[in-house]
Design a protein around this nucleic acid. Structure first.
Lengths: 145, 145, 145, 145
DNA sequence: TTTT
DNA sequence: TTTT
């Protein structure tokens, strides 16, 4: 039983495909961006403004594989998870990246299985081009989550 | 009615005092860090590890003033809010800072009002007189266990 | 991964002690009422009104034992769980009881361990007087929760 | 700022159409049942069991009108609200009905506007045939609210 | 930088 | 970079 609470709940759309990373021990991690929107009326002009917030979602192992299999860019999901901020140094400057580590999820639209069961090699064609690797990806094996 | 959800809920302790900023139009903003902890057992060594996550909490106007008045470093709070990531450029490099914009809050310990004003023996004087049982307790008796 | 969500989060105070029930297989269940309050201003009179909502909280096994050990009437808790409505017939009339099945919890005040480590036999003296038993108690062993 | 929390979040499907009630002052209320499901494996037999939980959702005024306009039986919604238990006496017996008072909502499928912009008189053609009625629907009719 |  |  925890003595603190770190809970995030999102409903939004994937801005890109799920990018998978496989580790030696058999673990894997998936990453994808999720957009949430907020609308409000500008006080002066009265015009409606929509702002978009982007969330870096991280999933692991079984959940990651389900996401890769069933989620595509544009799909809507409900995500329950927690906030984690990674930090690293780049050229002497501390940098931070905040991620949403998803623990539970509900697929709210799954184009893939509904429209057409596409051959898996055509859905994520350039999955391997992940040039800029996130700092912690190597260490992921001995992380708590 | 929104078509997306961006919800954060935290229970944690303030790592520092509330820092206020006042704007010309009469608006104000308060900022303070909140720590949440997570414990897990290391798979190899079996030893218990506690990690701390720090959240940059932002409050506005009335809520900010309440926080400044009643919250101190070390106090425990429940926070409901949303995630916002600000970005800016520093020396040509995009930098990000993720904040929790608090919309509702519950003070779970407020040292300020507990420690000084009232003598502690007058705060819960008749704690034992809870004569009136909660509505459902009677019904509960004749319920399935 | 669920395709639906049934989530409850409460912060409130216990209206009574935790009542334990032990089953043959070694399982146990604890029950206690939790009060949440809501204040609003009456539109006509402008006077502030506070209403109290009572929640029938149910905990199982390990969590139940922790609750019995550390929670007392008046203590404040954070509860995360789900809603379950049981139904049964009484004299030909369908009756319902809605419960909050707690899955996670944070103790926000624990008078017991802070003030005095009272001998457990003095805290819940009449724990065994659970006279009226019920529909679901037998089935409890093979229930989902 | 509240000193307690009474929060419910649901993702589920409507078990019936939205039933509206209009009051003299211009206020209105809408009611509809929402089902959430949970699956688990029976420990003995190992077979997968799905249980359904029915929630009595209550909406007011603007939100009620949006629900009536855009939601139909079978639609999926995300609901954020609070738990309220009403009590009344029937033939000398105290009876309880627990409702989810929705404060915010996200329509996750809206068959009405997506499939065909049906003329409003054809949208609830067989409203009275409620064969598989959710538990509380009968009781709800003759309740206070 | 908090807390247990 | 999503979606309405």
């Amino acid at each position: 039983m925890a003595n603190s609470l770190n809970k995030v709940m999102l409903i939004g759309h994937l801005g890109d495909e799920v990018k998978m990373h496989y580790f030696e021990g058999g673990n894997c991690i998936g990453r994808f961006p999720v957009a949430t929107n907020e609308s409000y009326s500008n006080r002066q002009t009265g015009e409606k403004v929509t702002t978009t917030e982007w969330h870096n979602v991280v999933v692991r192992n079984k959940l990651a594989e389900l996401c890769e299999k069933y989620l595509s860019k544009g799909d809507r999901v409900f995500i329950e998870g927690k906030i984690k901020t990674r930090q690293w140094e780049q050229e002497g400057v501390k940098r931070y990246s905040t991620e949403i580590h998803a623990l539970d999820m509900t697929f709210l639209t799954t184009k893939k299985d509904l429209n057409n069961p596409v051959p898996s090699n055509t859905t994520e064609p350039i999955e391997n081009k992940t040039t800029s690797a996130p700092p912690l990806s190597d260490a992921a094996d001995d992380l708590p989550f």
